[in-house]
Design a protein around this nucleic acid. Structure first.
Lengths: 261, 261
DNA sequence: CAGTGGTCTAGACCACATG
DNA sequence: ATGTGGTCTAGACCACTGG
């Protein structure tokens, strides 16, 4: 009666929100530490679908009591689950099962939307920021511009089933795209902007993939715990004459994506 | 003697091993939590070279006392530093500054050793295992073999300046390389094995990069804390006729490498 | 306001590695 | 035997969010 919703999750404030945790006993002094056993147990509940994406866990206090461990021990397990992208915690709200988009496969040299082949997921775009400013030295170097040349900075989020899975910042030489804002505004497509300015063909000249850890800002945007590991991608596109037209930097939660080359 | 190697660091068992931690006071209730402040401080000590690679930190008990915090608070900072690859802890031994090889840049389609361009680091190879066995279904599929065809499994570590930075497992169809062990033994080079069996040219047909978290086994091999994030790469090589000759899977610590395509 | 997660303390016992 | 990191407990206060 209380817990059989399809997806999001109910909130039964009164009683036990999730029965899955009842009557469990973890063995101390076993080969695997208690927090690991708890980790494994919750992980299995998620994998098996007993804890569907978006559902809320019981409060840490309740849960710790139910599992007969200290909150600290419980939190050790929860922290690992957060770092691995299975849970997200929001202060003052609760802990939720993260919607892991089964992992995207992103292929090199393709446009973003082309990458999501038949995943059957709602892909959304949200533009956080779009402005013109003088290029900082690092930016100028990447785009082979003189320092302080004006550039256009575009910052966006991609979401899958309402959940943010990718945040990135793109930089363009302003002089190549005088009508950027206008042509972008129509359907938030950079490709459209390129086309509107006569850039039909372009190629990704280099892609760099490195690892990092979510800054507080990134973490908030991606709904992660700060310090969660992320992929950092870094790429430059050139037009057919070899002129750099775009520099992209972006972050994916480590567990949300697979790159294929 | 006991511990006076060149780079690692001094070990003054009696007194304070590292003075860098003396006289610090962290402000509670500040905007950033104490464990974060400790994290930042140690991080800066590492970055600035005050804590050189290989050096040992004071014991957690001492350190916590010196910083005037609980061991738990201190450990929260240390845990993050371990997950980010800056520190490694060995039970019963101590906590050490990890030798981050500044990050390798690994280029697609190149042989391993070719990738380390002018890093000036000692690259080593250690063969952990080499055996013949029937192919499991997953393996057989990748190499397009009938199940239970015998394959050769090779498991190795690559080290940089004595520190393990990469562990991988390669699988080959046994019938293509009858003299594998012999030709491999000479200089531990797979390329040599290929050449010895008449495979001069081959190409990497697909590379997959995903993220994961170090299993206890991996962690021990790579000298990481279990659960530390890692890159997982997954690739198949084919000869010039399109026949799969090698399937590679490997793990890098997230902070040790950058991939360039 | 009540409930949540985030932080922190002061102890304790253990398994492990080293000398 | 000693010192190390790994685990665990039983409390506490805080900032945040929501109704």
């Amino acid at each position: 009666m209380n817990q059989d919703t399809k997806i999001p999750a109910p909130h039964e404030r009164s009683g036990n929100r999730l029965l899955a945790f009842d009557g469990l006993v973890f063995r101390p002094r076993s080969d695997t530490p208690i927090w690991q056993q708890i980790y494994d147990h919750i992980f299995n509940l998620i994998e098996s679908g007993c804890l569907p994406p978006g559902s809320q866990l019981p409060g840490e206090t309740h849960l710790a009591e139910k599992l007969a461990v200290t909150r600290i021990t419980l939190r050790r397990a929860l922290l690992q689950l957060q770092h691995e992208g299975h849970l997200t915690a929001r202060k003052g709200v609760g802990i939720f099962v993260r919607n892991l988009p089964s992992t995207f496969t992103v292929r090199d040299g393709q446009r973003f939307l082309d990458n999501f082949e038949a995943h059957g997921q709602e892909i959304g775009t949200q533009t956080l920021l779009i402005l013109r400013e003088p290029a900082e030295p690092a930016v100028a170097e990447r785009l082979r511009l003189a320092p302080d040349t004006t550039i256009i900075r575009l910052c966006r989020i991609r979401t899958s089933d309402k959940q943010p899975v990718y945040v990135n910042t793109k930089v363009f030489p302003a002089h190549l795209f005088p009508d950027f804002e206008q042509s972008y505004g129509v359907c938030q497509s950079v490709t459209d902007v390129f086309r509107a300015h006569g850039v039909e063909n372009y190629r990704r000249v280099e892609t760099r993939i490195s690892g990092g850890f979510a800054s507080p800002d990134e973490a908030e945007i991606l709904r992660l715990t700060p310090g969660t590991p992320v992929f950092r991608i870094n790429a430059v596109n050139e037009d057919r004459n070899g002129v750099p037209i775009e520099w992209t930097r972006g972050s994916w939660p480590l567990t949300s994506v697979e790159f294929v080359f």
